[in-house]
């Protein structure tokens, strides 16, 4: 059985991002998506700490302490880019101006609930950052994550066990095994499966019913 690598997952998401979208990429695999958007396709990256038109990492000697991304790594600004304060930045998010946000997640439920900030109800000091604002505010929320946990438990579930980040927010999930849409009233609808894996095998690794349009 084959499965996508992290790079292949990032590249697969990048295929679906058209020119002209304003896109916020979360930390981890989502950040890697930027590397697979061809330079000639103008996608404007938003970073919630106050950047539109974010570019790749600078050469070390060109880094400045004032130009970092939401993961606090040095970045660059593309021509046409801009800076703004946090209230404007989250106004862009909450106000529905960001076309797409891609986040990682611990779990996604079949109604689109997402859990990606706290690993336990008992964790009283989890770091939420901008995750709730992005999940509630972006026009589209896609998740990129492994299909199961390291010990094989499904991450696509009927109901999230972890504390929610947002309710009914996710539209699409890209995993190392499949591309799955979350359709209101239906649940998980499989769009693509990695070569060599059957729907039955995919279902066995999924914690909720998978539907197909076929």
């Amino acid at each position: 059985m084959s499965s996508f690598t992290r790079q292949q997952m990032a590249a697969r998401v990048a295929q679906d991002i058209p020119e002209g979208w304003f896109v916020n990429l979360g930390i981890g695999i989502p950040t890697m998506i930027a590397d697979y958007v061809p330079m000639e396709r103008e996608v404007i990256l938003h970073s919630e700490n106050g950047i539109l038109g974010m570019g790749p990492a600078p050469a070390p000697e060109q880094a400045t302490p004032w130009l970092i991304n939401a993961g606090k790594q040095p970045v660059t600004l593309r021509p046409g880019g801009s800076f703004f304060h946090h209230a404007d930045s989250f106004g862009m998010i909450r106000g529905g101006h960001i076309d797409l946000c891609v986040l990682g997640a611990f779990e996604v439920a079949e109604n689109g609930d997402i859990a990606n900030w706290a690993t336990s109800e008992n964790d009283s000091a989890p770091a939420v950052g901008g995750a709730m604002d992005l999940a509630a505010g972006a026009k589209r929320l896609w998740v990129v994550m492994d299909h199961t946990t390291k010990d094989g438990r499904p991450k696509l579930v009927e109901t999230c066990g972890y504390p929610l980040t947002a309710h009914c927010a996710v539209q699409r999930i890209y995993t190392n095994l499949a591309v799955i849409d979350v359709v209101r009233g239906r649940g998980f609808v499989v769009r693509e499966i990695v070569p060599g894996l059957s729907l039955t095998e995919l279902q066995a690794k999924t914690g909720a019913t998978l539907h197909t349009d076929a």
Partner: peptide
């Protein structure tokens, strides 16, 4: 925090900015 010597209020980042604005 673990020793109970610090109170904590967690606020989503955008809500934090907007509350001050």
């Amino acid at each position: 925090y673990r020793a109970g010597k610090l109170e904590l209020e967690i606020v989503p980042q955008g809500t934090l900015a907007e509350r001050m604005r």
